[in-house]
């Protein structure tokens, strides 16, 4: 959890999105979080210039899942030299859509009284996992069968030391739900589902073997291009 985040919300550490030297003294670092269905862009805005900054505004380019600010950014201004401020910007997913490469890439324009600056950042796709992503067991079985094998991707998560219950609990904190669990030949097989805000479902099998720190995640999705990003979320939350 990030500082000040409610327990249970997964929040990757902030990274520098816009270094001061590229933006006439404006520095922005940030991360994304989802809590109770609300997606937020959490930013630290720092004035490393020698004069005050005012007139902040933010705009997103169209992106794969229609992420957009739910309202104008609220930055108390003026921001004095050497001052920094924490800002939370609530987002929605009803903005214009255009497929990005990578899929979770977001291009941002950020304005102040000095100029307009542009940067790209990547959000964890888990911020798009809906709270109602637990698929009915019967539907899961039918869907798993129905999605062709070509749409299955397999990934390894190396050096993970959780048992399957702990893994399942961590994954549930980002709205990946365990639907069934079976143990076969000493391997725990967890069947899981998640639903993206745009209605795309992903189905997963997580294989955990006692004493083996390497997990195998198999993902089946009708839109297999999301699998890589989904895997990154598994890795991030399980290794966090």
């Amino acid at each position: 959890n990030g500082v000040g985040m409610p327990l249970g919300s997964f929040c990757p550490p902030k990274t520098v999105w816009l270094p001061a030297m590229k933006a006439k003294g404006l520095e922005i670092s940030g991360t994304f979080v989802r809590h109770a269905g609300v997606i937020q862009m959490e930013m630290t805005i720092t004035n490393k210039a020698m004069s005050v900054m005012t007139g902040f505004a933010i705009q997103f380019n169209r992106n794969s899942f229609g992420l957009a600010p739910a309202g104008p950014i609220q930055v108390p201004s003026p921001l004095s030299p050497n001052q920094n401020i924490e800002v939370s910007l609530p987002l929605n997913t009803v903005g214009p859509v255009m497929k990005m490469e990578p899929l979770n890439n977001l291009q941002v324009a950020f304005k102040n009284n000095i100029d307009v600056f542009y940067f790209s950042c990547q959000y964890p796709i888990s911020v798009l996992f809906a709270e109602d992503g637990k698929m009915e067991r019967q539907v899961f079985l039918a869907t798993w069968k129905d999605i062709p094998n070509e749409n299955e991707s397999q990934f390894q998560i190396k050096d993970c030391h959780l048992n399957s219950d702990a893994a399942s609990n961590k994954l549930q904190s980002i709205n990946i739900f365990t639907i069934a669990e079976r143990t076969v030949d000493g391997q725990d097989m967890l069947y899981q589902s998640m639903k993206l805000t745009n209605g795309i479902w992903a189905l997963a099998e997580l294989k955990v073997q006692a004493g083996n720190p390497n997990y195998t995640v198999s993902l089946k999705c009708r839109a297999p291009e999301v699998s890589q990003c989904v895997f990154q979320s598994y890795e991030a939350v399980l290794k966090n």
Partner: peptide, 20 residues
Amino acid sequence: ELEDGLDEAFSRLAESRTNP
């Protein structure tokens, strides 16, 4: 009965994935 059938189906799925 449906629930039993689903339990059974998940067991078969897990088996098939471990010993294809």
